[in-house]
């Protein structure tokens, strides 16, 4: 019997963590926002004081959809970190828009800035948490299993113990012996 070890986890009866669920929510949110930016850049630009920057908003939409789809994959951490970077870009863009905005646009842009700032905090916490959850291995050197040959009588005696048992329907190697046999004329 091999030595074994057990490892307890914080919620062993469920594999999906709260962080996973938040990451998925952010993924769907990202896709939704991206679609709005691609479909209605003009309306969005007018509301936020970003007229003339429709192409930029559509490009941001593409970025949001890409990050959103990736966030729904089995490795969401890079996508959520990408969202953090995107959030900073959004904040900068909204701040630029604020400069030339009229009063209503300013009000909208300030609300948007607050919302993006809030979502940035959520993104940051989620990304950090995902990275911590998936990088528990970091620092581990890997256990040494060099005493586990699996051959109770030793590796040397195991070598070739089953030699030559390949069934006919699994024989696919062109050996010199087989080639000679095939080339020899029938008696």
């Amino acid at each position: 019997m091999n030595p074994t070890s057990t490892l307890s986890t914080s919620r062993p009866d469920r594999s999906l963590t709260t962080t996973d669920r938040v990451a998925r929510g952010l993924g769907w949110f990202s896709i939704g926002l991206g679609l709005v930016e691609i479909i209605a850049p003009g309306r969005l630009g007018r509301a936020l004081g970003l007229e003339g920057r429709e192409r930029l908003l559509q490009a941001y939409g593409g970025r949001e959809i890409g990050a959103g789809v990736w966030a729904l994959s089995d490795t969401p951490a890079p996508a959520i970190w990408a969202r953090v970077g995107g959030d900073l870009l959004d904040l900068a863009t909204l701040a630029v828009g604020l400069r030339d905005a009229d009063s209503e646009q300013k009000r909208n842009a300030i609300i948007a800035l607050a919302a993006v700032a809030g979502i940035t905090v959520v993104d940051l916490l989620t990304a950090a948490s995902l990275t911590a959850e998936t990088s528990e291995r970091k620092g581990e050197t890997g256990r040494d299993y060099s005493d586990r040959s699996g051959f109770p009588q030793g590796a040397a005696s195991a070598r070739g113990a089953a030699e030559g048992i390949t069934p006919v329907d699994f024989q696919v190697t062109a050996t010199p012996e087989r080639a000679v046999a095939a080339l020899e004329p029938a008696e």
Binding site: N2, T4, L7, P12, D13, S15, R143, S149
Partner: peptide, 16 residues
């Protein structure tokens, strides 16, 4: 059995 590194109860399966 050389390959077994971890043994746990079924209820711990999701975590495993």
């Amino acid at each position: 059995s050389f390959v077994i590194t971890h043994t746990a109860d079924l209820k711990e399966g999701p975590g495993m």
